[in-house]
């Protein structure tokens, strides 16, 4: 049962890094890929339908830690307090930017604009750049924090936050991997000028090949980091796992199918803006 619980944890962690890594990486590259407000909205549309379903893999990972490895969750989260607080704050800021960006006064739809108080939407000029800034900064903070967290895991000290040169190098390397993954995702999703810019980053390899390569790395890195952790030893009591793990194993294929449906429904490249 412990082994199955570890496998589930690895599956959801890898799923988070591969899927959410793509939209976080694209968010990191937002100012590079989209030079105008309109282009940035297109870049966001490339991951808009997915990011809500992507980030929930991390919630599931945290839930699995709480349910199957409660002791380890406490050690890891308390030890990584200084890393996780910025990570969560960055995540919140980023998501706020994404959800709120398109909610500024739209042309002709804002009551003030409709009343003739200025033809340019009042909030749009400040609002949307501010939201874009939140998305970019939030995405970088999340990616860098993951690098710092992974540095502790690779060093075998999940209970203390990594510091020093090693932590800086790991944070930058992992952030670069997130960005490369985002560039690959952008090059399979976008069209027009943002697409051309994403292609400049992925080089002459086929778009899908670059995305698949960074995707495998994104799955491999957290799983490798997790191999050294004392997970099986700190698993929850047998009575808990005997009920929890089978239930989660039964539901997981349905979750994957529902997510697969999302990816299939929105598989086409984007050429226009979305709700965000």
């Amino acid at each position: 049962m412990e082994t199955l619980a570890v496998a589930l944890l690895g599956f959801f962690t890898a799923g988070y890094f591969v899927l959410a890594g793509a939209d976080i990486g694209t968010g990191m590259l937002l100012p590079f890929l989209g030079r105008t407000d309109r282009e940035r909205r297109l870049v966001i549309a490339s991951f808009a339908p997915f990011f809500l379903g992507n980030e929930v893999w991390l919630i599931a990972t945290a839930g699995l830690l709480a349910g199957c490895f409660p002791d380890f969750e406490g050690v890891l989260f308390t030890g990584q307090f200084a890393v996780l607080v910025p990570l969560l704050a960055g995540w919140m800021v980023r998501d706020a930017g994404l959800w709120l960006r398109g909610r500024a006064s739209g042309a002709g739809r804002d009551p003030d604009a409709a009343a003739g108080r200025g033809s340019v939407p009042r909030g749009g000029r400040v609002w949307r750049p501010a939201c874009d800034g939140a998305v970019v900064c939030g995405s970088w903070v999340v990616a860098l924090s993951w690098g710092r967290l992974l540095a502790s895991l690779f060093a075998g000290t999940p209970g203390t936050a990594a510091t020093g040169a090693g932590a800086v190098v790991a944070a930058l390397a992992v952030a670069a991997l997130f960005a490369a993954h985002g560039a690959g995702f952008a090059s399979v999703r976008l069209t027009g000028a943002p697409y051309a810019r994403a292609r400049r980053l992925t080089g002459r390899t086929r778009a899908w090949r670059s995305f698949a390569l960074t995707g495998s790395l994104m799955a491999a890195v957290p799983v490798l980091a997790g191999l050294s952790l004392p997970l099986a030893a700190s698993a929850a009591d047998g009575a808990t796992l005997a009920l929890l793990v089978p239930a989660l194993l039964v539901i997981t294929p349905f979750l994957v199918a529902a997510q697969g449906w999302t990816w299939w429904a929105f598989r086409h490249r984007v050429s226009g803006p979305s709700y965000l």
């Binding site: 339908p49 997915f50 990011f51 809500l52 379903g53 980030e55 929930v56 893999w57 919630i59 599931a60 945290a62 839930g63 699995l64 709480a66 349910g67 199957c68 929890l244 239930a247 989660l248 539901i251 997981t252 349905f254 979750l255 529902a258 997510q259 449906w261 999302t262 429904a265």
Partner: peptide, 19 residues
């Protein structure tokens, strides 16, 4: 119960809300 909530309820909820 928290784990079940995240995976059985919240995960499905987020996926379908996005859809």
């Amino acid at each position: 119960s928290l784990a079940v909530e995240t995976i059985v309820a919240f995960f499905v909820e987020s996926t379908f809300l996005g859809l």
